[in-house]
């Protein structure tokens, strides 16, 4: 109540505008929830009345029961932990390695010109197609999964970050040269800081790519993780395992993406 008195007077039109805006936002939220809940209810009902085959399609309560059960015996956390760890390792390594290669290519324009067609081709190859080779080379283990995840993101990182480096404003580079700066100083004072937004963006994209790599890797290595749960569940016709894993994966991907977006906001908080 007290705060309202302190606030500056607001015109009626503005108040009406704000009210309408709030109302609309609220309506959007409610509709979103209605759809989700409606979908789940319909699914549950369809399975109970055997409009659909619950053996093939499972049902929300069954999925929930499975999740609670696995959470209680600790299995679920082990699988989630494995997948998360592999994904994080994959996209962090992919981004760091990608940026490092981009720096080398920026440094030496001859090398980057030589590398260009290879990068274009490598970028076009569906990286998951290389997963079986990786497993042959590195063995049937977690290292292979991380390597596949890394592979999915590293090439695209090299290309976008290098592109960002090369598009740094010429005049800003001239500024450093006029001060007598070295190439390293050009990189350190202008090219790198100017491209932090670009690298944050790469990080965001790489989260999604890394998940794809990890899941495919886990399909093949088949020891642990949500990807393993999906493939195993489908083999033994436990559709509730499969669907539960998919739902958890979506939530994890959303959380990781959000976390990176927050990190980005924090890093770039001072820029306009």
């Amino acid at each position: 109540m007290w705060r309202e008195i302190k606030q500056p007077a607001m015109s009626q039109a503005q108040a009406r505008f704000l009210k309408e805006l709030r109302l609309r936002r609220w309506a959007v939220r409610v509709t979103q929830w209605v759809f989700l809940v409606g979908f789940l209810l319909l699914w549950e009902m369809a399975a109970n009345r055997e409009w659909i085959d619950p053996f093939l399609c499972s049902q929300p309560t069954e999925i929930w029961r499975t999740a609670v059960e696995m959470a209680q015996n600790g299995m679920l956390w082990a699988h989630i932990g494995t997948t998360l760890w592999e994904t994080a390792a994959g996209f962090l390594l992919g981004t760091v390695l990608g940026v490092m290669v981009a720096v080398l290519l920026w440094w030496n324009s001859f090398v980057s010109e030589v590398a260009e067609p290879y990068l274009v081709v490598l970028n076009a190859v569906p990286k998951t197609a290389l997963a079986p080779i990786i497993i042959v080379w590195l063995g049937n283990n977690q290292t292979s999964v991380i390597a596949v995840a890394l592979l999915t993101s590293v090439v695209v990182t090299i290309m976008t970050v290098l592109n960002g480096f090369l598009q740094t404003e010429e005049e800003k580079i001239k500024l450093i040269r006029v001060f007598g700066g070295t190439k390293w100083q050009i990189f350190q004072k202008v090219v790198f800081p100017a491209n932090i937004p670009c690298m944050m963006n790469a990080l965001k994209i790489n989260v999604g790519l890394s998940f794809v790599g990890v899941i495919v890797g886990e399909f093949l290595v088949a020891q642990k993780g949500l990807g393993f749960l999906i493939i195993y569940g489908s083999q033994v016709f436990k559709l509730s395992w499969v669907l539960m894993s998919v739902v958890i994966l979506s939530v994890l991907a959303a959380i990781l993406y959000k976390a990176i977006a927050c990190l980005e906001k924090f890093v770039l908080r001072k820029r306009q």
């Binding site: 450093i176 006029v178 001060f179 007598g180 004072k189 100017a194």
Partner: peptide
């Protein structure tokens, strides 16, 4: 000392840190 057509202040640095740029480089 060279002053370019645009100010080319580095947008990720404060004004104080911008004017130190030449000192840092040299």
């Amino acid at each position: 000392g060279y002053m370019l057509q645009k100010d080319h202040l580095l947008e990720w640095r404060t004004i104080r840190s911008n004017i130190f740029l030449g000192l840092e480089i040299q």
